[in-house]
Design a protein around this nucleic acid. Structure first.
Lengths: 224, 224
DNA sequence: TGCCTATTGACAGTTACTGCCATTTGGCGC
DNA sequence: GCGCCAAATGGCAGTAACTGTCAATAGGCA
């Protein structure tokens, strides 16, 4: 990698880390692009070349730390049943929450501060969902617009989001992986609406979550 | 209602309808607030008093035409099982799609044009979800942070969104209600991942959707 | 009729973002 | 090392979404 690309890389990382720091200190709306540019030691115009909009800085910080659902799924589905592959993908995406809880909570709090930022996350999840739908349809040999695969993909991502929500509500004290496992068990048993015979309709009192296996760490300001 | 409030009401409706018309003609980004103000015959400053931001005009046009999920659910759950009440709420929210397909498609296309606008919809759905979670927890006598109710609320809204998506993909030719019914049947049968014994894992070929019962029409630019 | 208050409008200012052009700087053949 | 090219950067001017402030206006009511 030449001098040129290395400089770009470093600028990019400097921008994201300085921006996150400023957002954390002063709030998202209160920190101007000019301030970020100064902190990252580039001109405002250059900052806009790296990130066409302020919210994309936040999204970059988010995606840099989270595995891509569809990628993990694509990898795992070759060697295990679909249900397990989905579970693995969910765990992989949630890995940051268990490994760097502080940082995960911080980024989420920044995302929560601005509608535009939430929009980027929503769009990102939409892409993941479309991608997963496509993969599921190929696995099962049905059309991509088959209601069954569309619904399955959406529910899988909902389990992920619900786990993240519950984890956040616990302020990072719970295990996100354990939470996700709990939810998937619930789903398998038919949930509240369609409980399978012999399973309780409600979730078991989840005072203690399972211990979490350590997974290889992802670096914070990765290549993105 | 006095002269004063009536004037406000009329201004509000003039703004939303003119704005939607302009968005439809020129696109969301291309129409300025100034242009909307002029079309609605108010000063720009006044326009901002009615709608603090451009995207909220679009959200208002959306919510004015769609029933509130949680309200319908609250009403119906008193007289029928939860599963049916959820279904009724889904049908009620989807009613616009079947009654005013053109308008529904238009608003959705405008929402699709801007991330901020999508964010508002997402936030709106988030409120609905929290509200539904609370109601479900009361119905079942469990905590609001019970994973089971959280997941149930999310899945219910996902069914709604999936139905809307599939309906939109059909360009309004399908029945959104029929689509939703199809999805709920799928869910009841355990879907792809956990099929109940004796049910096909995949959705049945849905060439013909059920006929749709006519429901009382909601006015387009209602009180909001 | 005349006062009071809610609504409106005009003006100036901030900030996110864009297009354009001049300047700098790393990469590379010589 | 030298000079050329293309990529990267920076500065400047402009647009448009907002926001605060204050004066003008117009219902509502005594």
């Amino acid at each position: 990698m030449g001098m040129r690309e290395k400089k770009v890389q470093r600028s990019r990382e400097r921008i994201t880390s300085e921006a996150i720091a400023l957002f954390a200190r002063n709030g998202y709306e209160q920190t101007t692009m000019e301030a970020i540019a100064e902190a990252a030691d580039v001109s405002p115009r250059t900052l806009y070349r790296y990130f066409p909009s302020k919210d994309l800085i936040v999204l970059a910080s988010f995606t840099a730390n989270t595995a891509k659902f569809s990628e993990v799924f694509a990898l795992r589905v070759k060697e295990m049943p679909i249900e397990r592959a989905l579970a693995e993908a969910i765990f992989a995406v949630l890995a940051v929450e268990d490994e760097e809880p502080k940082h995960a909570l911080l980024v989420r709090s920044i995302i929560g501060q601005s509608p535009v930022t939430r929009a980027r996350l929503w769009d990102y999840l939409g892409e993941q969902q479309r991608s997963l739908t496509k993969q599921l349809s190929e696995c099962l040999g049905v059309e991509v617009n088959d209601p069954a695969v569309i619904l399955t993909a959406r529910i899988a991502l909902e389990v992920l989001l619900a786990a993240a929500d519950i984890w956040r509500a616990s302020k990072g004290r719970a295990s996100s992986r354990g939470t996700a496992e709990n939810l998937m068990l619930l789903l398998r048993n038919g949930g509240i609406l369609f409980p399978n015979p012999g399973t309780s309709a409600l979730s078991k009192p989840s005072g203690s979550n399972q211990p979490v296996k350590k997974l290889p760490q992802r670096r914070r300001h990765a290549s993105m």
